[in-house]
Nucleic acid binder design. Sequence first.
DNA 1: TTGTAAGCGTTATCAG
DNA 2: CTGATAACGCTTACAA
Lengths: 346, 346
Amino acid sequence: MDPRKLAPTLRDVATLAGVSTTIASRVLNDDPVVRVRDETRARILEAAATLGYTPHGVARSLRTSRSDAIGLIMHNLTSPMNTTVLDGVRGRCAEAGYVTLLADSEQLATDSGRLRSFLARGRLDGVILHVGHGYHDKLIADVSRHVPAVLVNSDGSGSVPTARLDDVAAGRTATEHLVALGHAAICFIGGPAEAITSLGRQRGYEEVLREAYPDARVDVISAGWTDELGEDAARQLLSRPQLPTAIVVANAVTAAGVLTVLRQAGINVPNDVSVVGIHDAWFAKHLAVSLTTVRLPLFELGAMAADLLLSTLAGKPTPMNALIVDPPPVLVVRESTAPPRPASHA
Amino acid sequence: MDPRKLAPTLRDVATLAGVSTTIASRVLNDDPVVRVRDETRARILEAAATLGYTPHGVARSLRTSRSDAIGLIMHNLTSPMNTTVLDGVRGRCAEAGYVTLLADSEQLATDSGRLRSFLARGRLDGVILHVGHGYHDKLIADVSRHVPAVLVNSDGSGSVPTARLDDVAAGRTATEHLVALGHAAICFIGGPAEAITSLGRQRGYEEVLREAYPDARVDVISAGWTDELGEDAARQLLSRPQLPTAIVVANAVTAAGVLTVLRQAGINVPNDVSVVGIHDAWFAKHLAVSLTTVRLPLFELGAMAADLLLSTLAGKPTPMNALIVDPPPVLVVRESTAPPRPASHA
DNA sequence: TTGTAAGCGTTATCAG
DNA sequence: CTGATAACGCTTACAA
């Protein structure tokens, strides 16, 4: 039933090979320093093979005080964007020989018992935090007190290395596209008001708008990262006497909700209003109207966060801030954007 | 730099409290058997608190030979459905005090070194495998040789407990809806030909079709779980002289691709052809046409898989097959289905 | 070239 | 009610 009870130990291998555990260990970990007779080495390898020996990771960890495991504390794992970041983290860690422990930031932030057990000493060499707004300040402090940590898309207040997307460039790219098409009445539908990524994108939007139209009206609605909140924002827009001619949405999931509500209201996208979303997720082309987006390097963001942590763990000097500028944000034009219709009235 | 170097040990706590590590350990784990003076207990607790003591998980694991960790080996983590399953697994395990190690099935199947390090003895109490077709037979065998394992939506060939969705019922529900609307020429677009979930849904489709029209033509196209493969399948359909009047798609992601290609081809859904998808994912309502779907309990599937494993670990008798029948598949009607148009020709 | 022995931080057994 | 002590399986000075 339980195979571990019978699992062969290093001592078993050593005994079978007729050597001490010392050389057995060294040979199996191919220690570059040790010099053994080829014949001895062969005996050990053979013994390990016939026994089907697997090293006991926990015993090794206890001895070496490394676990070769990193923790990934994520917020809203259901979002396709976050999944991509996770893939980047996990892939890079796996390449470096680390396994990944996954936890949900909400749970850890609200249940200190779970947090403690997640951080139980020795189990994790380091932690990557990709958390939303909310409890995150305390969580970041709690975690980074225990193990080396890095942040993804958060405000590390300088104390913890952080990997970030170039949100300002993303906001600029989206808005520049609309301005180039001739739009001036452009609304920005953002994420949660406190979300640093949303604020960056908003800043890009404002910069471009002001550069193009020095006294343009900055028009911002705070929504959130879900399709429902996008729907709410769109309804809010519809209740106005006049629609903008174009919308920048800070997130593709939110944009999905916006497009659906506009469709339900009989608004034609892009003829009545253009919409551009940020994040070129797989579903963008399949939405109510296929969505023009700005592609952002989410996988690379995760990989970079992993690199920062691995570099810290290796004792190398690590930059406190890594902005992912390669690849840069790229506009992917689909059917949701067009020039504004020629002024029909007023 | 490295907080673990300074981390207080149980001995530190015991020394500060003026007791042995034995009682310190027992008190801190509140062993129900031990009876200590309240005063002693208080001293120990206080010492632990002032030192900020955290138990060393690895040392504990070595001693108890339990890690309170389970491994989740998943395939295609990018799929929103799989993410939901993952959420169910992780949530249930967290409730039971287990942490979750995540790994990608493709990587583990193709790199035996990674598999070995993932399964390093002692690190995992058990493993949940949610793998696609392909290398999975060997992978399942390799894993279950090392630790207790359970399967999700796979063919366990009877040797490993398995949690499954009621795919036949899902296929039936989708097809019954179309039959009730009056459709007879119904095509089924499946997942990969070997995928057991797809085959179950297909069987449900065939059953209902045959029950309604004893000599109806069963019309199946094998696609896959991605939107691109859905697009391919739809193109294949479009190359026929005559379209079916309705389509059942085994997966909502695939259905997204189908809808988009139909839109591009100028086919009106639902007037020219009805489409029903399986899996009521968040994006279903936002697609080219808002998609009628069958809702399946994916979260519960993950939770059930976790339950099977936890029950095995607890030494309880565990069913080899768990079909998730509660909640049952539920039809969610949106705009992609309608009665067939009155016979216009032939 | 190989072996001895200490110790990582716990928990469990057994004795006081 | 409390305390020595051994052991979990491994790595690594240090010896031989």
